[in-house]
Amino acid sequence: MGNPTAERISRDEYFYGHKACAGCGGSLAVRAALKVLGQNAVSVLPAGCMSAVGFNFPQLCFSNNSIISTFAGTASMLTGIEAGLRAKGHTDFTAVGFAGDGGTADIGIQALSGAIDRNDNIIYICYDNEAYMNTGIQKSGLTPFGARTTTTPAGEHIHGNLRPKKNMFEIAAAHGIPYAATASIGYLPDFIKKVEKAAKIRGTKYIHVIAPCPTGWGIAPDQTVEIAKEVVDCGLWYLAEYENDSFTLNHKPKTFSSVEDYLKKQGRFRHLDAADLETIIQSRDKKWAFIEKNFSYR
């Protein structure tokens, strides 16, 4: 029997033999996106997990043209590659960046904002594993409230990270970007459709994909995909798009699954108490009230 999603994408593997941890969500996001974009994708990866595991001379794990950028420079290097290839007469290529949450929401946000402002013809994919995982699980601007990291330890006085995630999707949208989307590797066909869509739109495209890290989240390697699905099902993440100046919700859970179950499966949240749980649920409900009000659903 055919798999409709598998039929849409390349049978070739562009990211293979890499040294990512077993069950790495980020590597699945990169692999899937490149199977959409194909041989003429030029990928830019900043210092971070995916470059560290994919580019150790002479073990070079991308079969398409790929390059490491500076940590802050994913978007600016994409700009340069796109402009340089265009200046040299190339027309049939896609410049795509894969940066983590820290590389996107923290150190790389300036260059990303500049690229969106210029409306450079690039796809920027943020694979969000919610902390600096390559350096050993430190808090980033996309670490969620309550998460324990090595720089937000959970103890008697402080229960992990005190601040919620930055809203990169709406930050990108606020630039008036031609296309922005959220996704999760737990809903891979949805992510793949969004990459396909991005490839057809001119200008800057931003896709924010949740990509769990078994090591940093404190889950078994075989849980990556399930937990990435569950974060959507319990309403702590959502699948949406922004284009033509408006937001669309792509997936609406009939009822949310248990936030507590989602959190308690992960080592990074195991310390949370009832009050913390209540804070998280309230913040989810507030977000969904905003979505109900401002996003269309179809």
Partner: peptide, 17 residues
């Protein structure tokens, strides 16, 4: 195995065909 390719699709390492 019914050849549904879900394992192929979701493998982070792309090692299943």
């Amino acid at each position: 195995c019914i050849g549904c390719e879900q394992c192929y699709l979701y493998c982070p390492d792309g090692v299943i065909a």
